[in-house]
Design a protein around this nucleic acid. Structure first.
Lengths: 112, 112
DNA sequence: CCTTGACGCCTAGCTAAACATAGTATAGCG
DNA sequence: CGCTATACTATGTTTAGCTAGGCGTCAAGG
C-alpha cells in the first residue's frame, strides 16, 4: 500500500477495530494488519497517539491490565464512540460515492 | 461533506477531472462540484496550489488563453499524467478495498 | 455611477494529523 | 547474553489542505 494516505480515515479504522472487541494498542495494530490482509501495517507512532486522541475525545475509554508481566492499556468503545463510528461509516460512504462519481465520469486511460 | 478529509486523494480527483477534457482552474472547481453532486466544493486555495504541484510534477501542462477579456490557464493531461491517473485509480481501489475489509469485519452499531 | 457578484488567478502562513525516531521495559529463545 | 516480539510513551518533523487575503475583468442592478 506504499505511502498510502489514510489521513482523515484512521479514526474510522481504529473505531471499527475496537468495535470488534476490546483491544490494546498493539493488538489494534495486529488486527488492522490482519483484517486488511497486510494493507494497513501502521507504525506505533501513528496508532498510539490516535488512540489517545480518541480517548480524550470520549470515543474510547481504557483501563490498565497486566498480562505476562506486561502492562497493557485495553480500549473499549464508549456509547459516543459507537455513534461516532456510525457517523464515520456514513461519511465514508458519502466520500467514496462522491469520489466514484468524479473518477467514474472521466474516461479511463485504457479506454482512450 | 463537512470538513471532509480528502488528503492524499485530491490528485486523483484533479487528474480525473482534467482527463475529461482540458480545463482551467475555475472550471476544475465547478466540474468537481457538479460531478460530485455538491459533495466536493473545494476552495481555490486548495485547488490552485495542487494544480501547480501537478504541473511541476509534469502530470499536467498548461497554456494561457484569454476569453472575454479574462485570462485563463488551461490545463491538459500529459502522457505521464495519464499513467499517474491510472496508478492512482488502482491505488484508490486498493485503499477502499482494504478499508472495506476492516470496517466490514466489525459489527455495525445498528446490528448490535 | 458604483456596488455586487460571478468569473478567474495567485500566494503566505496556519494547522491537523500521520509519521519518524528514540527511549523504557518484560518475556523467551538460541 | 543478544535478539526478537510484545507493549507503551514522548517529542520531533513533514505534508498537504485550508484560511485569508490580494489582484483584475465584466455584466447587472439599484
Amino acid at each position: 500500500m506504499k505511502d498510502q494516505e489514510l489521513k482523515g480515515h484512521l479514526d474510522l479504522l481504529l473505531l471499527s477495530v475496537v468495535a470488534e472487541g476490546p483491544a490494546h494498542g498493539y493488538a489494534v495494530i495486529s488486527r488492522l494488519r490482519e483484517r486488511s490482509n497486510g494493507g494497513f501495517d501502521l507504525p506505533e507512532g501513528t496508532v498510539y497517539p490516535a488512540l489517545h486522541r480518541l480517548e480524550r475525545a470520549g470515543l474510547l475509554d481504557a483501563d490498565w491490565t497486566t498480562a505476562n508481566g506486561r502492562r497493557r492499556k485495553t480500549y473499549r468503545l464508549t456509547p459516543a464512540g459507537g455513534r461516532a463510528l456510525e457517523e464515520k461509516r456514513n461519511g465514508w460512504e458519502e466520500f467514496t460515492t462522491a469520489v466514484r462519481l468524479v473518477i467514474g465520469g472521466a474516461p479511463w486511460p485504457a479506454t482512450n
